[in-house]
Design a protein around this nucleic acid. Sequence first.
DNA 1: GTGAAAGCGCTAACAA
DNA 2: TTGTTAGCGCTTTCAC
Lengths: 339, 339
Amino acid sequence: MSKRVGIREVAAAAGVSVTTVSHSLSGGGQLSDATRERVRSVAEGLNYTPNRLASGLRSKRSQIIGFISDEISTTPYAGRVLLGAQEAAAANDQVLMIVNTSRDDRLESRGIDALLQHSVDGIIYARMYHQAVKLPEALTGVPIVLLDAYSDRADLSSVVPDEEGAARTAVQHLVAAGHRRIGYLNNIDDIPATHGRLAGYKAVLAENGIAFDETLVTTTESTTGPGRDAAGQLLALVDRPTALFCFNDRMAMGAYQAAQLAGLSIPENLSIVSVDNFELLADALLPGLTSIALPHYEMGRWAVERLAAELAGDADSAPQQIRMPCPLVHRQSVGPPPR
Amino acid sequence: MSKRVGIREVAAAAGVSVTTVSHSLSGGGQLSDATRERVRSVAEGLNYTPNRLASGLRSKRSQIIGFISDEISTTPYAGRVLLGAQEAAAANDQVLMIVNTSRDDRLESRGIDALLQHSVDGIIYARMYHQAVKLPEALTGVPIVLLDAYSDRADLSSVVPDEEGAARTAVQHLVAAGHRRIGYLNNIDDIPATHGRLAGYKAVLAENGIAFDETLVTTTESTTGPGRDAAGQLLALVDRPTALFCFNDRMAMGAYQAAQLAGLSIPENLSIVSVDNFELLADALLPGLTSIALPHYEMGRWAVERLAAELAGDADSAPQQIRMPCPLVHRQSVGPPPR
DNA sequence: GTGAAAGCGCTAACAA
DNA sequence: TTGTTAGCGCTTTCAC
């Protein structure tokens, strides 16, 4: 730390004015390439780094992106979102300032105040799973991009996973393996993932001439225990499914346990595909769990890049609300149906 | 956003000078309580919020804490650390600016530059698992607290988990349940957790008059597959262990699988305790996995609080290097030994 | 007790 | 093509 070198030292050392230094470094003004180059090398020689507080104060651009999320922790996915956002920010010479709200309006309000006081240039408003949000009043007029969230404000860009597409990919994979009797362990929460994935499941069945059988669809909490029970129920059917599509990896883990209890081996007697591609689980299960990956990292990157584009003003005029595709990650839990 | 109200508007509205407003709000100066109170209410009425860029520029205190970590993502624990750090920062009216290095020196160096340019008041230098670090030159002179890391610099405060204590608690729990033949699935990496937990394991055996038997200790990569193999090996012993202490939950999951393959049920035929308390796994396993929790959230909090104390100058003069205790979380994987 | 005024380090008009 | 200068919004001497 000690005494950082400032723009005037650079100016003096280069024998020019501070203006020239500022222009040289920021690429502004009308300078000869020679001067620009010389100033730059002097600055570098002096180990000059700008004071962003000062430049932000003057120019009204702090180069700070605020990141508000309801839960930084709890889910292991959160980290990937942050990582993507952080890397994109770094690439734009921006930095991330984070705030966690724990789904508490007061904390959220304080957090927004803190970000605004620090003059963030814009805010990524993130949720840890795909859901509808209502933006707080305090954010009015601030550049915002929604992440894993959507609102009724058509003027905001947002990014969410393509839930229906995810389910389509998963179920299509099972159909391609020869399955026609496919169960679905759905979540019970009233959220886009629940409805979107069910829609995808039904669509693929229809497209393949497979009649929808509601006895093959269960609706429970999306954790391991309920998944185990739900799968057990389906596997006890006289005409049991030969494959299971699971809402998430945790439910799939329950399905593995149910299969074991029923004496069925995977994938010989039962094929399983789920959503999340949470590696700690998917890789650890025996055999490995084939799963649809949610594009957390990509959504983080996209949100920051989009925000940067909007801030730069060179963005396509219209805000974008996009759904990200969710790729299938092959492991060993899918095989042909038993004969 | 629009036109934020500044300190001069408040001054005008309250009929005082900007100095008085500044003093009133920051608690400085020699003002009458009456004035202070009046100014405060006027400021609140006007919805005044200070511009931290300006105050930071002038006062040399940005109220920003930098958070550098090698991996924001990958591990699910990272989130808890960040959460603790964030909450502690918010409580101190500070905010977190995060940077990820991906264990890349160039990225780290850029990240440090970015934080310094934004005039962070101090930095939490974090690793995602307990390890030795060498601090980059660029950080010289900057207030630092190490998190899940330690260095040879005695002038820095740091916090790490008490690895030996964690193992002691785990193994003692097994001994208390009546076990005397206890296997240990250790990690192969040359890190403090590996050595510390082995030491704790040995210490408890010794204290209970149980001879150390090296055939009961395996050393492999700390993931599920290797854990499965290692456990399988121990369970195949003629005088097999009645309990297993596992380096982490992932290895414990492997041990569950090995037990199943060996036809042993948990906890009737085999008791298991591990370290991490990664709920997604520990809760999902059948039966629930008893595990030692690593104090991620607490370390995050402690690091920020300690840094704040050092910055405030009211800290105990000497830096503190502490080991945090790791509590046992009871589930259903421990029982008495089979007779 | 309170206020005037000088900057913090930089950028952006405007001059030259 | 380059330099002068006036602030950005606040804190902090220092004078009253």
